[in-house]
Amino acid sequence: MAKPQDDSTTQDSAAVIQPISAASTLTFRDTLYTSRTVILPDGRTLPVIKSLVSVEAGDDIALKCLKAHPEYEQLKE
């Protein structure tokens, strides 16, 4: 005989998993290279893949670096 399923545990696990929305990331196009690694002032790295690099909207250091450099264009999403 099957056990009745507790609905509260199913709902809790669904509430924990939240997909990252596309609005929370910004994408830039590298105008010179299709593949390279961008090293940020704080030592972190960002991969450029197929001329694209994505950063979180709240990452002020990465955004400042990419926006200040003329080799990167922010894509309209």
Rank of each mutant, 00 (worst) to 15 (best):
T31L: 15
T25K: 10
I17G: 08
R44E: 01
F28S: 00
L32S: 13
P19F: 07
T45F: 06
L32G: 10
D42I: 02
T45E: 15
A23N: 06
T31Q: 10
V16C: 07
I39P: 01
L32I: 14
R29A: 06
L32T: 13
S21W: 00
I39K: 15
A23F: 01
A22Y: 03
T45G: 09
L26C: 05
L46M: 08
V38N: 00
F28C: 07
S35E: 11
P19C: 03
P47S: 14
I49H: 13
G43T: 00
F28R: 03
T37C: 09
S21M: 04
S21V: 00
P47N: 15
A23D: 08
L46H: 08
L46P: 01
T45Q: 15
T31K: 14
I49N: 14
S35C: 06
T45R: 11
S24M: 04
S21E: 03
P47H: 12
T31M: 12
R36D: 08
F28T: 01
P41V: 07
V16F: 12
F28I: 04
S21N: 04
R29V: 02
S21F: 03
V48A: 06
V48R: 00
T25M: 11
I39T: 15
A22S: 11
D30H: 13
V38P: 00
L32P: 08
V48K: 06
T31P: 01
I20Y: 12
V48H: 07
V16A: 12
Q18S: 10
G43A: 00
V38M: 07
Q18T: 13
S21C: 00
I17M: 12
V16N: 07
D42R: 04
P47A: 14
S24Q: 04
Y33S: 15
D42L: 03
R29W: 00
P19K: 04
T34E: 12
L46E: 06
L26E: 08
Y33L: 15
V16H: 09
R44Q: 02
A22F: 05
T31W: 02
V38Q: 02
D42V: 05
A22K: 07
R36G: 09
A22V: 04
L32V: 14
T37Q: 13
T31G: 03
S21Y: 02
Y33I: 05
P19V: 01
A23C: 02
P47Q: 14
R44F: 00
I17A: 14
V48E: 05
T37R: 13
I39G: 00
P47Y: 09
L26I: 15
Q18F: 02
I20W: 09
S35R: 10
T45A: 10
V16S: 10
T34N: 11
L46K: 03
V48C: 11
P41Y: 06
R44Y: 01
L32E: 15
T25I: 15
S21R: 05
Q18C: 08
T34M: 12
P19H: 06
G43E: 01
P19L: 05
T27K: 05
G43N: 03
R44A: 03
D30K: 07
Y33D: 15
R44W: 04
P47W: 07
S24W: 00
V38S: 03
D42E: 09
G43Y: 01
I20H: 08
V48N: 07
L26G: 00
Y33R: 15
